[in-house]
Nucleic acid binder design. Structure first.
Lengths: 100, 100
DNA sequence: ATTACATATCTATATTTTTAGATATGTAAA
DNA sequence: TTTACATATCTAAAAATATAGATATGTAAT
């Protein structure tokens, strides 16, 4: 858990938003066509639509979020789903609380 | 209190360290020559010495920290002292807790 | 008023980040 | 076994950040 790395990720509005949206996928995204839950998170396409940014930008963002261990990818057929990594997010929050 | 702005500031190791050092000035800095307390924080020169970076870099860093309201400057004669802005830091920690 | 010193600002360069478009890869369906 | 589609990676350009050195400013002592 690298606070500096995480803060870098969270110093961009879109990336913070993505993390927040993933907290309540059912409120922020349409249902997936192949599965009826968000257990593994949300597919890249939906996240892209919601942000209005290009596909490559969102892919890059999600990759940086994954490198910081903030999200976990799961492949389902053609789609990659991303969900929050709650353990790391919680550890980050506690580190901010205790160290800052 | 702008979380994105604060995260930008806190995405650099030196700036995070400065904020941490200012939590316990007596442990991290020598006593000032003109006053015998750290009520208004620590002078720029001591912070510069501790980091080993150039004077202009530290001045820029402190300025960015001040813009994000993380620190409060006080002029004492020739010196500018910087201390933590505990209210904003606390509000930031709570925002991270509640919103993230 | 001149000098010395602490800090801020300006100028400039190297590095990093942001972002898009083009291309590649992997998977499923026809 | 092509085709279509979702996502990732590569390439490249613009913008932002990091940082040093030079210069400016403000304050205090002489």
């Amino acid at each position: 858990m690298d606070i500096i790395e995480i803060n870098k990720v969270l110093s961009n509005k879109t990336r913070v938003n993505i993390l927040k949206w993933l907290k309540n996928p059912e409120l922020n995204f349409p249902p997936h066509q192949d599965i009826d839950h968000f257990n593994d998170g949300v597919c890249v396409g939906y996240i892209q639509d919601k942000t209005g940014l290009s596909q490559s930008t969102i892919s890059t963002y999600l990759n940086s979020m994954q490198n910081a261990d903030l999200v976990i990818p799961t492949r389902h057929g053609k789609w990659t789903y991303y969900k929050r990594n709650e353990d790391v997010i919680q550890a980050y929050i506690e580190a901010i609380q205790n160290e800052l």
